[in-house]
């Protein structure tokens, strides 16, 4: 089985899948599909951790995989869907720039990451591509946050960044000790919940879920 994973470079396939789901965010029009896309991304992340856990036979990686599955693959998407229903937002993600331009810029980001990390200061183990992909996912998440107008899409961008970060940490060091991993996930979960509450409040007070209404404070 282990040979099998290596021969077919399963790990590379999954990490490319993670990158593709992140890039797909640029082309999605409806908020619901963005949430689905995020769920898919988290599931792939969890699967990747599980496979590496199987290969290096580390218990704490299995735990990390299951916790990722439960929190990012299940709880957070459920919560986001609830928020979207509660806010009764229009379903369009309404980016500031066109999808074509957005996709092009994401592509450039990936190219830049690959070019700049070519010298590879890090080679630990299981794949040459994972670190590059994770940095690219972080940047794409950031890019999505900047270019989207809706509060919920910004949160999803942030979540993509966190996924990329987990992947980066994982590729560098085979993950943190379990207790730290749990603490980080807990923080993240609380953060998403608080952001959800604030998103609902913004909708209530500003009568809109668009963040371009939030421009009163400046200078």
């Amino acid at each position: 089985m282990k040979n099998w994973i290596q021969v077919f470079s399963v790990i590379d396939f999954i990490s490319v899948g993670i990158l593709l789901t992140a890039i797909a965010m640029n082309a999605l029009k409806r908020i619901e599909s963005c949430i689905k896309d995020y769920t898919f991304n988290s599931l792939l992340l969890s699967l990747l951790i599980a496979i590496v856990a199987f290969m290096v036979e580390e218990t704490h990686l299995y735990i990390a995989s299951i916790v990722t599955l439960l929190s990012k693959g299940l709880l957070i998407p459920m919560f986001l869907r609830k928020i979207v229903r509660q806010m009764k937002v229009t379903h369009d993600a309404e980016p500031y720039i066109s999808n074509a331009l957005s996709l092009t810029i994401s592509g450039i980001l990936v190219a830049v990451v690959y070019a700049s990390l070519k010298e590879g200061i890090f080679v630990t183990g299981f794949s040459k591509n994972v670190l590059q992909i994770s940095i690219a996912v972080i940047l794409i998440g950031l890019f999505i946050m900047i270019t989207r107008r809706k509060a919920v899409t910004q949160v999803i961008g942030l979540l993509f960044m966190e996924n990329g970060l987990f992947l980066a940490g994982f590729s560098l060091t085979f993950g943190m000790p379990t207790i730290i991993e749990l603490g980080v996930l807990f923080d993240m979960l609380m953060g998403v919940i608080i952001l959800g509450i604030f998103a609902v409040q913004i909708k209530r007070y500003f009568a809109s879920a668009d963040l371009d209404k939030l421009t009163i404070l400046k200078g």
């Binding site: 942030l158 960044m161 970060l165 980066a168 940490g169 943190m176 953060g191 952001l195 939030l214 009163i216």
Partner: peptide, 25 residues
């Protein structure tokens, strides 16, 4: 306005601090 301020605060600080976690890694 406090909601606007808090939104900005949590988004910016969380994004920023994400990089700090990368640094810690």
């Amino acid at each position: 306005l406090a909601i606007e301020a808090a939104w900005k605060y949590i988004i910016l600080c969380t994004v920023g601090i994400t990089f700090a976690l990368l640094g810690t890694f």
